[in-house]
Design a protein around this nucleic acid. Structure first.
Length: 227
DNA sequence: CCCTGATTCGC
DNA sequence: GCGAATCAGG
């Protein structure tokens, strides 16, 4: 496989979306994880949370040629809290601590809740997915104001592809990643959220008292994938 | 072991 | 430019 413009664009988009190299490679197909990483570097894309580069701020050892066994007794004065801890016990397909920081803006609505929990993750297609089990987190964004009736925007005559995603369009996935008709909602977003008003209602649901909860969770995207 | 990204280096 | 091999941390 060669790196066509589209493949490079997809690579960039997914890389910046927080998808792991493995996910990107899997989505692109025909390339290995290393190929993706290598290409990403050649493109100038810099790696975000690199588990390997987490610390290492003083000693630089770019070449593994010399490895002096300079192991001091080493006290640990700096207790480094691991910030990357995803509490996701349910992993249907693959575990992926993917982050979606860029896609989840901070709490815009000065409501009661202090902060907006990140209840989204990045799925295999680079789309944002909400785990069904994540619904229990304190979910603030009950629309405080009157909901605007979904107004069809004429600017979205065509489908919104992965490459068309931006902070302005709804990222709610329609269909299945990888399929030819897979696209995103593309509606104008509810300001401060990655989804439009309608899909915000799907993504964020009020926490009902125990017992009154509705078992059937909303289907995040068209349902289980059928291959 | 698994995963991750970084880097190197022969092609 | 490409990516397998390798390294290195979690």
């Amino acid at each position: 496989m060669s790196w066509t413009d589209e493949r490079i664009a997809t690579l960039k988009k997914m890389w910046e979306s927080g998808s792991t190299a493995s996910q990107i490679a899997d989505e692109l197909g025909g390339v290995s994880r290393n190929a993706v990483i290598g290409k990403a570097h050649r493109l100038g894309l810099k790696s975000r949370p690199s588990p390997v580069k987490a610390n290492e701020a003083k000693a630089a050892k770019p070449k593994p040629a010399a490895k002096p066994v300079a192991k001091a007794p080493a006290a640990k004065p700096a207790p480094r809290p691991s910030a990357a801890s995803a509490a996701a016990p349910a992993k249907p397909v693959a575990k992926q601590p993917a982050r979606a920081d860029a896609a989840v803006p901070s709490q815009p609505l000065p409501n009661k809740t202090p902060d907006l929990p990140k209840i989204v993750s990045v799925g295999p297609g680079g789309f944002l997915r909400q785990g069904p089990g994540d619904q229990q987190a304190p979910i603030p964004p009950a629309p405080p104001r009157r909901l605007v009736p979904a107004k069809p925007d004429p600017s979205i005559a065509d489908k919104t592809s992965l490459l068309d995603l931006s902070d302005k369009v709804c990222r709610w996935p329609m269909g299945h990643p990888g399929e030819p008709d897979f696209h995103f909602c593309g509606e104008q977003v509810n300001p401060g959220f990655p989804y439009c008003v309608e899909h915000c209602g799907r993504a964020y649901q009020a926490q009902l008292p125990r017992g009154a909860r509705r078992p059937p969770p909303p289907l995040p995207f068209g349902g289980p994938r059928v291959r």
